[in-house]
Design a binder for these strands. Structure first.
Lengths: 202, 202
DNA sequence: CAATCAATCTTGACAGTGTCAAAATAGATT
DNA sequence: AATCTATTTTGACACTGTCAAGATTGATTG
């Protein structure tokens, strides 16, 4: 009654499932998400979700998609948030923001870039598209930073984008999984990473 | 009859389980490893493994331990394999070798540094020890490379070790999971990473 | 307004999972 | 030879993803 489209029985079950699923993994990790628990939480029968997601895999992909949207949003907001910052500091802000996002949404992040979808499962066409766009965004950043002299301009942007993002990603993974990295040290390590990645040394 | 110690009934079940488990994940991924399938493959009942590993978690930790041993072995062999190489090229060899190891044993690698053990499960004390030693080895490498001028000597070795290893690790993860990185481009990206990480530019 | 259709949801079922308890077996120790 | 203890098995339980068949109900058409 309040909103536009109203599916048949339940209301907007698909969205409710998505939200509940995101809550579930945020609380107990990806391995805590089962279709049955999810259905229980929303108040439908165990197989009801199968009319909105073909698979558990498709559900996970949908959650990941939301994550990408959130990340895109956050990342593009940075340059408008700090308009007067010099490029190298802006880049540092970018890195710190990215890491915080990965940590605050660690389970979604694992879904976005983890093996559950990309190796064990199968990424949806829609997910492939959105993640590719997300990378393209990063690539554009890199190109801009090459012009600013932050990154080595003699190497192809794609390579720099891949290598630098891999570095960033590796840091997030280690941090999220609690390997070799202490919580309090993250910002420090991130800054070290930034210093290593940029070509000019002060 | 052939070897030293012979456990009671089966022979050396523990080792056979470990080997079979490693085979299973190498073939079908970690998610393809079930205690029951494993028991079947070795020819014992479903619960027999529980007298050699308290948990599935402990089994996974044991596999990961073997992986660390293998990695240690491989990594320490590099400096003896190329004794006359200049430090920067030695470092590049290190990186390429590491990535190849991670790829050739991708499932074990995921176990060694993945969330299954470190986040979802609980690393064994023994695994924590061996992985810490493995990192210490890397730290020593970094210190040596700082002296050689490959890494920025003004920053603490620990930070450099964490940041550089995170970069390397991130690359391996993306490569293994097939995200953003094409198989044929890996060596190229690896070299770009090396160039970005080392402080002297050519 | 009535009848048909199709989307949605439920119930029942099956094979697979980790793991616990209790019983059976057999090497080691006294 | 008898006891002990490490190993293995059988049976069971709760949980998982997902398929097939039936029930419900909003939308669509005559």
């Amino acid at each position: 009654m309040t909103e536009s489209k109203k599916p048949y029985h339940h209301g907007d079950l698909r969205e409710k499932l998505l939200n509940a699923a995101t809550d579930l993994i945020a609380l107990g990790g990806i391995e805590n998400l089962s279709i049955r628990k999810l259905a229980d939480k929303v108040g439908v029968s165990r197989t009801a979700p199968y009319h909105h997601f073909k698979d558990k895999n498709e559900l996970l992909c949908a959650i990941a998609e939301q994550g990408f949207l959130k990340q895109d949003q956050l990342v593009t907001s940075i340059s408008t948030l700090y308009p007067d910052l010099p490029a190298n500091e802006l880049f540092e802000q970018y890195v710190l923001t990215y890491i915080r996002f990965a940590h605050d949404n660690s389970e979604t992040y694992d879904l976005m870039y983890g093996r559950d979808i990309w190796k064990s499962g199968q990424p949806t066409d829609s997910l492939k598209l959105i993640s590719k766009n997300c990378f393209r965004l990063w690539l554009e950043w890199v190109e801009a930073l090459q012009i600013e002299g932050i990154f080595d301009a003699s190497q192809p942007p794609l390579r720099i984008a891949q290598a630098s993002w891999a570095a960033l990603h590796g840091l997030c993974r280690l941090f999220n999984d609690g390997i070799y990295i202490n919580r309090d040290d993250v910002d420090d390590i991130a800054k070290t990473t930034v210093n290593m990645l940029i070509s000019s040394h002060r």
